[in-house]
Design a protein around this nucleic acid. Structure first.
Lengths: 205, 205
DNA sequence: GTCTATAAGAGGATAGAC
DNA sequence: GTCTATCCTCTTATAGAC
């Protein structure tokens, strides 16, 4: 077995701490408003040391997004392990997870507009690979759920996939939270409901 | 009647051109990536001239948002004029309008994270007044639609309102457009459908 | 690999002539 | 009110000692 040396362990722990800080800041203020100085201060090291670990601000964000996808895939694995669960229930668990992460301030978000970051992500092999893995596995569940009659078969699967992904950056939960009238659990329930059932009444002619 | 002097007319036309450019850039790259240099270049005047009309970058964005709300209220007026239309149909026309504006690249968006911009908007009397007017009028339609049985009465009205507002910055249309498999009209129809009917099949036990 | 110090440049805002 | 030229702050990134 390959045992990590002490130095390598320290390195990994430090990089984990960096990614955790980046994750927090990305969730809090987004990529453009996050500064590398803040990241360094948050981790408690000098900025120049940060650049020994990651070559650019974009690389920092990419590392955080990779960690997010790794966690998403771990959750998908757990859901797959449960036998006898309907595909739609698994998908609803995924959208719920995204909503809970976002409401808890743990969901890093990157603007799809920023071109430098976008270019870096599209060139990041690991990121793209994990994203495709997640999309493939969710896509299979979507097709299954449509065959089960649990998702509208008239909807293109990619629309369903994007709609679930979009829960990660839905502004509605934050607005409801700012209103102060609901608990986090209630907000998740309400937004989840509008996502899957829509705004119209449950049953109608 | 108060007739505008020639000078005042020229001023107004120029400011309209500035706001149009800001609107375009906000829709294209967002507030943080929009630079005042770009705005000036787009309008075709010097940056210093821009600052004679608007005191800050935040004020530029606020002016664009005010114009957006004025147009939204004008549309709401038109919808009100149609007698005999159900409240839910009016609301669906609003969400459709937001989707079409966004797909057409005409919807300015401001990040809810940016604190300097947020502060400026919350201190902008005209902006807040128009936003409240729009919310009040849409809110009345929402309550009416719930009474009509056309919107789930179990949903808090503010959830419905925010969900409609969120169509203005929904990332799903752009993703579908990037895929290239659908026309703009089809995308509007699909996203509109998931918004109002959800992902589940239309009728179920 | 960590630090201090600094380069390099972008971008918001302004001075002052016309 | 418009221009050119400039200021100044913030931020990314790096040099070089230890």
């Amino acid at each position: 077995m390959s045992r990590l040396s002490f130095k390598e362990q320290v390195l990994r722990v430090r990089e984990d701490a960096i990614i955790a800080a980046v994750n927090r800041l990305l969730a809090d203020k987004g990529f453009d408003l996050m500064t590398v100085d803040e990241v360094a201060a948050d981790v408690g090291i000098a900025k120049a040391s940060l650049y020994k670990h990651f070559p650019s601000k974009e690389a920092l964000a990419a590392a955080a997004m990779v960690r997010l996808l790794e966690r998403a895939l771990a959750m998908i694995d757990q859901l797959s392990a449960r036998e006898g669960q309907r595909a739609v229930d698994r998908l609803m668990a995924v959208s719920r997870w995204a909503l809970e992460m976002q409401l808890g301030g743990e969901m890093p978000t990157v603007p799809s507009q920023n071109s430098s970051l976008r270019a870096e992500l599209l060139a990041h092999k690991t990121y793209l690979d994990l994203l495709m893995q997640a999309s493939d596995r969710l896509g299979a569940w979507i097709v299954q759920a449509q065959a089960d009659g649990d998702i509208d078969p008239a909807l293109p699967p990619e629309l369903v996939l994007y709609t679930i992904y979009a829960r990660a950056c839905d502004p509605v939960p934050a607005f409801l939270k700012a209103g102060g009238a609901f608990t986090d659990a209630q907000i998740v329930e309400l937004v989840q409901r509008t996502c899957w059932n829509g705004l119209r009444p449950p049953t109608r002619a």
